[in-house]
Amino acid sequence: MLSIPLINMKRKIVIEILSSLLILLFVYTGVSKWLDFKTFTGQMNNQPLPNWMTPILVWTLPAVEIIISGFLMFDKTQLIGFRASLVLMLLFTLYTLLVLLKTFGRIPCSCGGVIENLSWPQHLVFNLFFVGVALAGMILKRKEKLKIS
């Protein structure tokens, strides 16, 4: 039987792996949006959203991704980071589901980098994977905090 310190150490390692996956995702997507800002802005204008939202979204979405990454980097803010990751990934997943259900008249994409090469069903699987990562991280981090308290 594993001792409690060993279980806690394994939990910490898993939490770090989960947070690292989300950090890589959000830093990559956030920075790629800023590096190709003109294309990203054009893609956001192509979304089935009111155009007045574009100036807000093109600045806040990458910033939120980077801020969430910052929360995930530090032990004291990791739970907030996991929760925020879960919310953001659920929103992305909902959007992907709406596209797959043909809710919009056209199929836009504002993904950056290699992610834009995924088909919409692949996007859904990709997003669901990261929903699972965020959810698992949140659950493990909450258990860790409860053990400490």
Rank of each mutant, 00 (worst) to 15 (best):
M1F: 05
S3Y: 09
S3C: 09
P5I: 08
L6R: 13
N8G: 02
M9C: 05
M9N: 08
K10D: 08
R11I: 05
R11G: 01
I13D: 11
I13V: 15
V14C: 11
V14N: 02
I15G: 01
I15V: 12
E16V: 00
I17A: 14
L18F: 10
L18K: 04
S19L: 09
L21K: 01
L22E: 05
L22A: 03
I23W: 06
L24I: 07
L24F: 14
L24S: 06
F26N: 09
F26W: 12
F26S: 04
V27T: 05
V27M: 15
T29P: 02
T29D: 11
V31Q: 04
V31I: 15
K33F: 06
L35E: 12
L35N: 12
L35F: 11
L35I: 09
F37L: 06
K38I: 11
K38F: 09
T39N: 14
F40K: 03
F40N: 01
T41M: 14
T41W: 13
G42V: 02
Q43W: 05
N45Y: 15
N46T: 09
N46W: 10
P48F: 10
P50G: 09
P50F: 14
P50L: 14
N51R: 15
M53F: 13
P55R: 14
I56E: 06
L57S: 04
T60Q: 11
P62G: 04
A63P: 00
A63Y: 03
A63T: 11
I66K: 08
I67M: 13
I68C: 04
I68Y: 05
I68L: 10
S69D: 04
F71Q: 01
L72H: 05
M73Q: 02
M73L: 13
F74Y: 13
D75W: 13
D75F: 11
D75K: 15
K76V: 04
T77R: 10
T77L: 10
Q78P: 01
G81M: 10
G81N: 08
G81K: 07
G81F: 08
F82T: 00
A84K: 03
A84S: 15
A84G: 04
S85A: 14
L86Y: 07
L88R: 06
L88T: 04
M89Q: 06
L90S: 12
L91A: 15
L91P: 00
F92G: 03
T93L: 15
T93M: 12
L94F: 13
Y95L: 06
T96N: 15
L98G: 06
L98A: 15
L100A: 00
L100R: 02
L101W: 14
L101T: 06
L101P: 00
L101V: 02
R106F: 12
R106N: 09
R106E: 12
C109V: 05
S110E: 13
S110Y: 13
N117P: 00
S119W: 08
W120F: 10
P121K: 12
Q122G: 03
Q122Y: 07
H123G: 01
F126W: 10
F126G: 03
F126I: 02
L128A: 11
F130S: 05
V131A: 08
G132L: 10
G132C: 07
V133A: 06
A134Y: 08
A134T: 03
L135T: 05
L135G: 04
A136W: 03
A136C: 08
G137M: 07
G137S: 04
M138W: 14
K141L: 02
K141Y: 00
K143Y: 08
L146C: 02
K147Q: 12
I148H: 10
